[in-house]
Design a protein around this nucleic acid. Structure first.
Length: 569
RNA sequence: CGGGCUGUGGCGCAGUUUGGUUAGCGCACUGGUCUGGGGGACCAGGGGUCGGAGGUUCAAAUCCUCUCAGCCCGACCA
């Protein structure tokens, strides 16, 4: 490709609204352009990277036996009603109607459609099956952000496994685990597998592949010594044992004028340290008021609450709802004596005594509260979010919280969809069996952004060879120098012949512009042909990563470079 | 969904508070001269429904109302 004929609209300044490094650089480098919030056009350079990422994913899923499909992006509502997710998905699903008034949805994922196809399976002899596609997904994200990292329309590789039994599902799951590891290695992403929440639809195993990055949106607990890794939506920690000996037989009301927060209650006379307080959070789960209890110094994780309650829609109660429910304002709330609302209590409060909590009357609290004696707990659940510095559940070492981009997610669905969608096969005994499913996703565009996040410097992008839009950039500094032009053409032909993607910068621009653009778009290797070296019979070879320029003999430079480069795919 | 901020040429911005000829600057773009190894200089140019609609006024980028769009924070710490 000749740069003079290419559409590579580089910008000196990033758009004012770009924050993430990948966002700025992908826009500045002419890879992507925003159409509207959460929807990006992939320009030729961006598409080349996107396709290379997709191709690597494709090869590795093929390698574990995947068969590629291309399914419709627009689905009938009936399919989603059958699985139950028409209601569950809420506002995140784009919905529309056709001219006849029929409800339609844009697919957020394709369990339903693949399951529908799987009703054509009739015999155990046809199992296992491993199906996948690379297709656009649509999600009405409440807040698209950070360029390609969180968008409303994106290409995703989603695969689904169908197996007769759990053993088969384990194999499919493990195969994906391995394939994902290979994929992320090939993409140049150091992705770590972490235990994760499987979300509203349940499932027995759920592993996310996380790439550490400040631009990410997930927090992962990482133990440096034993390798424990878990999303904070799922992870737990080891707490120091606390005194649970019975103190006083009865609770005691005491005045706490003006006290509204845990911290204030710590400070006043007769107060208590946060860890000896009960935090009472009034939450509304699918229109039902529920009290969530936590230790005063602990934080609620909403996803955990969702996973433990099965609720679809969760929000904190409004001030009015809180007052109407408990008769007091936030700051004086408690669950002692409350029986009209469901009470979900965090495990860390199990057996605790001598606690302080609100009395459900403004400016009054209770002390000497024994959780199990004084509170009617409906369920003991793990709903607290582990904080950095807590002790690893497995080995007791210090846990660190690392900000990450979720690059991939694999989980075992079980038989839920298969049952709902009516999939069944006859087993060897002629008995009807519902297959068990797994679901495995990788966001292609997000992977592109994650790679950009992990491979750039102040000057621009530094694409890993395997996903670079071009492998080699030949920069001609003097277009009037016929020797340089000839040499460039010969090198271009030889590289192309060797299977490399070559971009030739033949623009009538000053060297500084060409060098700056070269670094911005991040082609991994640059061959510079200019008068300074050519006069000495040399050309310059510069790997983008190191920036270290090496002079090569002009006659042998092509073969020298071909030897130095990784093999293209 | 709550709060905050922002919409002026392809990108970055000024002008809006206090309404007043022809809306300006940098980059980019076009032509030219010089220059020629890290976003060069000079000269001459082109490009704007000031997000949209309505209103106030002799007069609106500027004031008012509505609306659309985008960004950031929050939507756990009661």
């Amino acid at each position: 490709m000749r740069w003079s004929a290419a559409f590579i609209p580089t910008l000196r300044d990033a758009p004012a609204d770009a924050e993430a490094a990948s966002h700025k650089l992908l826009v500045r480098g002419g890879f992507i352009r925003q159409l509207h919030a959460g929807h990006y056009s992939l320009l030729p350079l961006g598409l080349r990277v996107h396709e290379k990422v997709a191709q690597i994913v494709r090869e590795e899923i093929d390698a574990i036996g995947g068969q590629e499909f291309l399914l419709p992006a627009m689905h009938p509502a009936s399919l989603w009603k059958q699985s139950g997710r028409w209601d569950v998905m809420g506002d995140e699903m784009f919905r529309l109607q056709d001219r006849g008034g029929a409800d339609l949805a844009l697919g957020m994922t394709h369990e339903e459609v693949f399951s529908h196809l799987a009703t054509s399976l009739h015999s155990y002899k046809e199992l296992p099956q491993l199906w996948y596609q690379i297709q656009m997904k649509f999600r009405d994200e409440p807040r698209p952000k950070s360029g390609l990292l969180r968008v409303r329309e994106f290409a995703m590789k989603d695969s689904y496994s169908f197996d007769l039994d759990d053993e088969g599902l384990d194999k499919a799951f493990d195969a994906h685990h391995g394939a994902y590891t290979t994929i992320f290695n090939r993409l140049g992403l150091s992705a770590m597998p972490v235990q994760a929440s499987s979300g509203a639809m349940g499932g027995s195993a759920s592993v996310e592949f996380m790439v550490a990055s400040p631009a990410g949106e997930d927090d992962v607990l990482v133990c440096g010594s034993c390798g424990y890794r878990a999303n904070v939506e799922r992870g737990t920690s080891r707490l120091d044992p606390l005194d649970t000996s019975p103190s006083v037989d009865v609770t005691e009301r005491f005045p706490t004028p003006g006290v509204r927060t845990i911290a204030e209650l710590e400070d006043i006379d007769g107060g208590a340290p946060a860890m000896n307080q009960i935090k009472t959070m009034v939450m509304v789960l699918d229109d039902e008021v529920v009290l969530a209890l936590l230790r005063g110094d602990h934080h609620l994780n909403v996803q955990k609450l969702q996973d433990n309650s099965g609720a679809v829609e969760i929000r904190p109660a409004t001030a009015e709802e809180t007052l109407a429910s408990l008769g007091a304002n936030p700051g004086s709330l408690g669950a002692v004596g409350v029986s009209e609302f469901r009470v979900l209590c965090d495990l860390a409060l199990e057996g605790r005594t001598g606690m302080v909590t609100g009395a459900n009357e403004d400016d009054w609290h209770l002390r000497h509260v024994s959780v199990e004696r004084d509170i009617s707990v409906d369920a003991w659940v793990d709903i607290r979010e582990v904080q950095s510095g807590e002790a690893c559940i497995d080995c007791g070492s210090v846990l660190e919280v690392v900000r990450c981009i979720e690059a991939g997610h694999i989980f075992k669905l079980g038989r839920k969809y298969a049952e709902a969608m009516g999939i069944s096969v006859l087993d060897a005994d002629g008995k009807s069996q519902v297959p068990t499913m797994g679901s495995y996703g990788i966001g292609i565009g997000r992977a592109v952004a994650a790679i950009a996040e992990n491979h750039h410097d102040d000057a621009g992008l530094c694409w890993p060879f395997a996903v670079a839009p071009y492998h080699v950039l030949i920069t001609i500094l003097d277009l009037d120098d016929s020797e340089a032009m000839k040499l460039a053409s010969e090198a271009e032909a030889a590289f192309t012949q060797a299977g490399l993607d070559v971009l030739v910068d033949d623009r009538a621009a000053r060297p500084g512009v060409k060098f700056a653009d070269a670094e911005l778009i991040g082609v991994p290797y640059r061959l510079t042909i200019g008068g300074r070296s050519l006069g000495k019979g040399q050309v310059e070879f510069t790997p983008r990563q190191t920036g270290a320029t090496e002079n090569l003999d002009k006659g042998t430079c092509v073969e020298t470079i071909l030897k130095a480069l990784p093999a293209p795919h």
